[in-house]
């Protein structure tokens, strides 16, 4: 999941559903929605990814956003 988020950085905003679908496509029935939910939770809680919001919520790499002031 982290690789997918990293590859999409700056190109496409990915939602939790996009990551879940990508994992299902890759691993088939051996991965459940519950597994994906837990994996996303781990990515966020570890600080490797963060939630973003630009019209809809997405999962992104941590960064300083353009709008931020000093």
């Amino acid at each position: 999941m982290y690789e997918i988020v990293a590859e999409s950085a700056g190109k496409k905003k990915l939602k939790a559903g996009d990551l879940t679908r990508a994992m299902t496509a890759k691993y088939g029935d051996s991965v459940s929605r519950k597994d994906c939910k837990a994996a996303i939770k781990q990515l966020i809680d570890s600080g490797r990814c963060v939630y973003g919001y630009y019209g809809g919520s997405s999962i992104e790499l941590p960064r300083t956003e353009g709008a931020a002031n000093e």
């Binding site: 966020i44 809680d45 600080g47 963060v50 939630y51 973003g52 919001y53 630009y54 919520s57 992104e60 941590p62 960064r63 956003e65 709008a67 931020a68």
Partner: peptide
């Protein structure tokens, strides 16, 4: 600002 928040929460 689309990225600010608290750890773990979206």
């Amino acid at each position: 600002g689309g990225l600010v928040g608290v750890l773990g929460y979206g």
